[in-house]
Design a protein around this nucleic acid. Structure first.
Lengths: 154, 154
DNA sequence: ATTCAATGGTTGAAACGTCAACAACCTGTC
DNA sequence: GACAGGTTGTTGACGTTTCAACCATTGAAT
């Protein structure tokens, strides 16, 4: 920003919105994580397994997982390694690109997310979705999309 | 949830809202963190220093900091220790409760956040606040407050 | 005064995330 | 076909976060 421009500080309403939204996210994720722990999964495990489950062939490239989850590639790689150690997922060489790997859930992985999903979804409903009107949900999605579309390319 | 109740899965709109909101938060925090790194602070450092700066006497109890930031006490303790090592904050025994500590920013800490704040706020504006209408911000705050108020006590 | 549950905070170990460096492969161009 | 530059993913080091165990102090009840 230009040195000569005086900083436009945030108004109380602006600060409050950003702060409360962050706090909300933090607390919800923490809650969901504690819940999932009872089923032997972390929230991150759940996200990965859910993403794999969404795909027609049940596999995803490492980079693609990263893009979907908003994780750096390195983070994906480390996390997949840990999940692999625990027998939740498996890596196979990508047939069409020799640099790449396909990640897929093992039977144990599929069983784990199937066991955890109902309680997880129920919690998302109880503490988030069902507290809001369709209109509020629409605005949230709209806002998030707007912000995401305006992020710097990197 | 009752075993007999069939799971009400999320609709696409509900999934999208939750997913995009989380993604938005993740990306914004990452962006702000990279920004602040140029001024030698992490996003977490910034939050702590900002919170201290908000207080009339410039001090806060460890637990109080945790409540405001949504951090577990242990996390606060560890983080304050690291910041103390770097000379950004200082602990003093709480005069009214011998168990407690008061955290306060050092001169270096105050200088650091003052140096970082303008660019930080500008980024929050550019990539969040200024992209949204007052009405959208109002809904965000309203939603976050609703959700936070309905969290389980723990 | 003594006990006892609750609170405030710290610690160490383990899981997690980021960063920079790197190796392997792909793609286009000459 | 060889080179240049970009892409894919891994690794190790290091900082961060969680979890459980723990100690000291407080406040309330007896």
């Amino acid at each position: 920003m230009a040195r000569t421009t005086r900083t436009r500080w945030l108004t109380d309403a602006e600060r409050s919105a950003w702060r409360n939204l962050s706090l909300m996210n933090l607390q919800l994720v923490a809650l969901l994580g504690r819940e999932l722990a009872e089923d032997g999964l972390s929230y991150q495990d759940y996200l990965v397994l859910a993403e794999l489950g969404d795909r027609p062939d049940g596999t995803a490239r490492v980079t693609e997982l990263g893009r979907r989850l908003g994780w750096e590639t390195s983070r994906v790689s480390h996390h997949i390694s840990r999940m692999e150690t625990r027998g939740l997922v498996r890596r196979t060489k990508c047939p069409t690109d020799q640099r790449g790997w396909l990640v897929e859930a093992t039977d144990d992985g599929r069983a784990a997310i199937e066991a955890a999903a109902p309680a997880h979804v129920a919690t998302v409903r109880k503490h988030f979705v069902d507290l809001l009107t369709p209109e509020q949900l629409r605005v949230l999605d709209e806002v998030a999309t707007t912000v995401l579309d305006n992020l710097p390319p990197a």
